[in-house]
Design a binder for these strands. Structure first.
Lengths: 159, 159
DNA sequence: CTGTATCCTTAAAGATACTG
DNA sequence: CAGTATCTTTAAGGATACAG
């Protein structure tokens, strides 16, 4: 990234944390079970300097938690925090979109299965409180308590 | 991005399309209703050269569709395609994560409301075929038909 | 194994000016 | 309004060597 986004916007804020070349791949690895520096490096191909940077940053952001596993503090493990695990919906949404629209049916690199039944996990679906599916046009975006003037103006101009 | 990712991976493939500084902000604008070059520019602050590049690329990728709206092909509108609209779950997942973990309750810049009832949209939730909620550890990642040898090996080593 | 310190190269971001 | 052409700057990515 050249600069950070300065807009008061949930997407922009998320991009400031997750929106670089490698971060989501590191999060993916963590979901796959990686915990060690070397695992992250081998499984993604990221340079060591970058990996060091990213892990430090992501720990600072509260997405990873670093834990000693060696005798003299020479071995470490990185675990997702609750904030990190909460990225599951983001990960799954990206995987499902990519499987369906980039690779296409029958060419998915990774399938998502319900561990207890072995059956595919259905597409993520936005639902209302009654459990009814919501379509793209059923969702309204309204300025929240933390909205800036610009955001408020932007959202009120929608329709 | 310096390079494209070369791994056979749904996340990596998605990042090759969406993973730059601006793209998801442009998609956000489209969901908010923007269709014109100038709207995208003003509402995001992106440079015109970049915007031109991105719109061209995203049209090539089948996420936006460009349509003439002027008399002599001098005015255009950009609409999300089905592939683009399918990014809704990605967008919503990012917004909900950011609202909850970056801004925090009561400080959300944007609220998501069910248009027909005006009530907040519940968190996206992964469910199995019976509609039961799935937790982070209930999902298994298995190599699919399009998996590379490396992916297959990686996934089989998980547990 | 888990990093840090340097250095170098590339390309992404963006300002400015111009066009139909 | 909707771009394109150029040029400059900056920073991100990554190779290499070294260290506890």
């Amino acid at each position: 990234m050249a600069n950070r986004h300065t807009q008061t916007c949930a997407i922009a804020a998320a991009l400031n944390i997750l929106g670089d070349h490698w971060t989501l791949l590191l999060v993916r690895e963590a979901f796959y079970g990686a915990t060690r520096f070397g695992e992250f490096q081998r499984n993604t191909g990221i340079a060591k300097t970058l990996l060091s940077d990213r892990l430090f940053f992501l720990e600072k952001e509260g997405i990873f938690r670093k834990e000693d596993v060696g005798e003299r503090g020479t071995r470490y493990a990185y675990y997702l925090t609750e904030k990190g695990r909460a990225l599951e919906t983001v990960m799954i949404a990206l995987m499902q979109w990519s499987n369906e629209y980039v690779y296409g049916r029958g060419k998915e690199p990774v399938q998502l299965l319900d561990r207890s039944t072995g059956k595919p996990v259905p597409q993520l679906q936005l639902r209302n409180r009654k459990g009814e599916a919501l379509g793209a046009m059923d969702v309204a975006f309204r300025a929240g308590p933390g909205a800036s003037k610009a955001t408020r103006r932007r959202l009120e101009s929608i329709e």
